Computed example of a mutant assay.
Amino acid sequence: MKSAFAENRPFLLLSLLFGISYYFACVLDSPELPEPLIVAWKGAGVSFLAIYALIRLHRFDGKIVGAIMAFGAIGDMALEYDMRIGAGAFLIGHLIAIAFYSRYRRHKLSLSQKGFAILLVPFSVFIAWALPSDRSEALLIAIYCLSVAVMASMAWTSRFTRYQVGAGAIMFLVSDLLIFARMGALENSFIPTLLVWPLYYFGQFMIATGIVRTLRHEMAADSADPVQP
């Protein structure tokens, strides 16, 4: 247990350190630092989640989860320079995540769970389409939101814990909707600034740790040793 803590927990602690400190230092404040340093600071939180997944899952699944987190980190940084490049990186990550969750579908769902997953996609896409004031951007935003919403729906209906992985994916989706709202109704509101990063970062944190915890418990199903997240 001690070796597991020494080997793996530091990556989660580093992720939390960079993810939380970025919010207070760079989102709620404007530090006088070189832009490349701020961009690297922004990407570090999710980058350490990618490393955590790669180390904790010594199999192909670890590489997939690591790739999902890595494209998220690339998107975080690229958004500071070009919105479309950043969105493209996130889109690749969402497509990988959709394929990944499809391999771990939950066999039994209640009617309410099915209904929520089905309605989540068109409802989210419509909101995203309706939000921007510049209607020339509405279609592209809706197309991008489709990938996020499908990813969240697939995470919600996967056999990973719904209250961690599913909820984390929903938080990611809400974070993006708030970004789109900042392009319209909430353009002059402080709400997106206050909520976008915490919802996104902790959503990613919950997704990564929830997947790793579930798969490691499955790998250790025949072992008496406790599994560390």
Rank of each mutant, 00 (worst) to 15 (best):
1 M>C: 03
3 S>D: 15
5 F>K: 00
7 E>W: 01
7 E>H: 06
9 R>H: 13
9 R>I: 10
10 P>R: 09
10 P>M: 15
10 P>I: 12
11 F>Q: 13
13 L>E: 15
13 L>W: 01
13 L>Y: 08
14 L>W: 15
15 S>V: 04
17 L>F: 15
20 I>K: 11
21 S>K: 13
22 Y>L: 11
26 C>R: 00
27 V>M: 13
33 L>D: 02
34 P>N: 08
34 P>T: 02
34 P>M: 06
35 E>S: 15
35 E>N: 13
36 P>Y: 02
41 W>L: 11
43 G>N: 03
43 G>C: 10
45 G>I: 01
46 V>M: 10
50 A>D: 13
50 A>G: 15
53 A>I: 07
54 L>T: 00
54 L>M: 11
57 L>D: 06
57 L>K: 09
58 H>P: 00
62 G>Y: 05
62 G>W: 01
63 K>I: 12
64 I>A: 12
65 V>C: 14
65 V>A: 13
66 G>C: 10
67 A>D: 01
71 F>Y: 04
72 G>R: 09
72 G>K: 06
73 A>F: 04
73 A>D: 02
74 I>C: 03
74 I>G: 00
74 I>P: 00
75 G>V: 10
76 D>P: 07
77 M>A: 13
79 L>H: 05
79 L>G: 02
81 Y>L: 14
84 R>M: 14
85 I>G: 07
86 G>Q: 13
88 G>A: 11
89 A>E: 11
90 F>T: 08
90 F>L: 03
91 L>K: 00
93 G>W: 08
94 H>E: 12
94 H>P: 08
96 I>C: 09
98 I>F: 10
101 Y>V: 06
103 R>Q: 15
104 Y>Q: 03
104 Y>K: 04
105 R>M: 11
106 R>T: 03
106 R>D: 12
111 L>C: 09
112 S>Y: 08
114 K>I: 00
114 K>Y: 03
120 L>G: 06
121 V>M: 01
124 S>T: 11
127 I>T: 09
128 A>H: 14
128 A>F: 14
129 W>T: 04
132 P>M: 07
133 S>W: 11
133 S>G: 06
135 R>E: 08
135 R>N: 03
136 S>E: 15
138 A>V: 00
139 L>G: 01
141 I>G: 02
142 A>V: 01
148 V>S: 11
149 A>Q: 05
150 V>A: 06
154 M>L: 12
155 A>M: 13
159 R>N: 08
160 F>W: 03
161 T>A: 08
163 Y>I: 05
164 Q>R: 12
165 V>T: 14
167 A>V: 12
167 A>D: 00
168 G>Y: 01
168 G>F: 04
168 G>H: 08
169 A>W: 10
173 L>K: 02
175 S>W: 04
175 S>R: 05
179 I>L: 14
179 I>M: 10
180 F>Y: 14
180 F>A: 14
181 A>L: 01
184 G>A: 05
185 A>I: 15
190 F>V: 11
190 F>N: 09
190 F>E: 07
192 P>I: 11
193 T>D: 11
194 L>R: 01
196 V>E: 00
197 W>T: 13
204 Q>T: 14
205 F>Q: 05
206 M>E: 04
207 I>R: 01
208 A>V: 10
209 T>R: 04
210 G>M: 08
211 I>S: 06
212 V>W: 06
214 T>M: 07
215 L>H: 14
218 E>W: 08
219 M>A: 15
220 A>P: 04
220 A>I: 06
224 A>T: 14
229 P>I: 01
